[in-house]
Design a protein around this nucleic acid. Sequence first.
DNA 1: CTAGCATGTAAGCAATCACTTACCGTTAGC
DNA 2: GCTAACGGTAAGTGATTGCTTACATGCTAG
Lengths: 99, 99
Amino acid sequence: MAYANALAVLADPTRRKVFERLRAGPRPVNALAAGLPVSRPAVSQHLKALKNAGLVEERSEGVRRIYSLRREGLMELRDWLDTFWDDALAAFKEEVEKT
Amino acid sequence: MAYANALAVLADPTRRKVFERLRAGPRPVNALAAGLPVSRPAVSQHLKALKNAGLVEERSEGVRRIYSLRREGLMELRDWLDTFWDDALAAFKEEVEKT
DNA sequence: CTAGCATGTAAGCAATCACTTACCGTTAGC
DNA sequence: GCTAACGGTAAGTGATTGCTTACATGCTAG
């Protein structure tokens, strides 16, 4: 049920913006916070949430913490989305849930 | 940016449960609310949110309102997710956003 | 060793949100 | 026409959440 966490975390616009910025590659917190309409501590908190959801990973580089995208964190969400197109599978799962 | 609404709406567990129940086919509100740990009005409110996000559609049948899944509402979210795997596209979009 | 930068954490606050109860309109059966 | 079932809406409330400022920690340069 990790897709639930991914959904909850990505629902916030600011947090999603931070996440999207990581598409361009690993970045330190300062770079991620630059230009955003919120304070740097706010971004730190968002990164913590993203990390807990398995959507980013962190590596220390001297005084910097370099955050990078973790695509595996999106896999479950992707799979969950797919269940809405595969009707046979969906019907089956629905049946299982009843028992 | 409809994927943003989809994310926000699907982030709530109860609302997601209602949405998932519709995988098994169209249902009236009563059926959707049955067994859920929340009141029927709460489900009505969730359905309204789902409808606003384009994730479900509603049809009247006598005194009943039959809700059904609207898979097109998930398309943008699916596409957005895909942008995280296509690195070339991602880099391009990132570049565009800067200007 | 001290100054300064980069970042995480704590505390507090205002806004949002999901929920409840109460109520209202609408359709169907007798 | 009454009456009951179905379901949308209003108002109020407690919990959650995202934000801010202030502070604590850790690394590095000189």
